[in-house]
């Protein structure tokens, strides 16, 4: 079997003013070839104005088994939202 080709994650900025967004992944030997392949595969119809390629191995992801521990605590912290605070109508928009 072949030697493994490194995996890259591709992020594209669809137009200026927007953030780069994950669109998919691909295999390439190095960053330059990954960028070239990303252009060929993911921007064939004017999908973007900027590309990032990131080695997949460089991404550290949260563990789904710990989803509750990670994200549940914010559920009860409703005082972090503006609607938690009562302001009389007379004050107007705030």
């Amino acid at each position: 079997m072949d030697q493994f080709m490194p995996l890259w994650e591709v992020f594209i900025r669809t137009r200026n003013g927007l953030a780069h967004r994950h669109v998919g992944s691909l295999h390439a030997a190095d960053a330059e070839m990954a960028l070239q392949a990303a252009r060929d595969v993911y921007t064939r119809r004017g999908e973007g104005v900027s590309i990032w390629v990131v080695p997949s191995a460089a991404i550290t992801a949260s563990d789904p088994a710990e989803t509750e521990m990670m994200f549940e605590p914010t559920g009860s912290k409703i005082y972090r939202h503006p609607t938690f605070y009562k302001i009389p109508d007379e004050v107007g928009h705030m």
């Binding site: 995996l7 994650e9 994950h22 669109v23 998919g24 992944s25 997949s56 191995a57 991404i59 550290t60 992801a61 563990d63 789904p64």
Partner: peptide, 8 residues
């Protein structure tokens, strides 16, 4: 289309 780092 995601990294497989956590596929244990």
């Amino acid at each position: 289309m995601y990294t497989q780092a956590l596929n244990v």
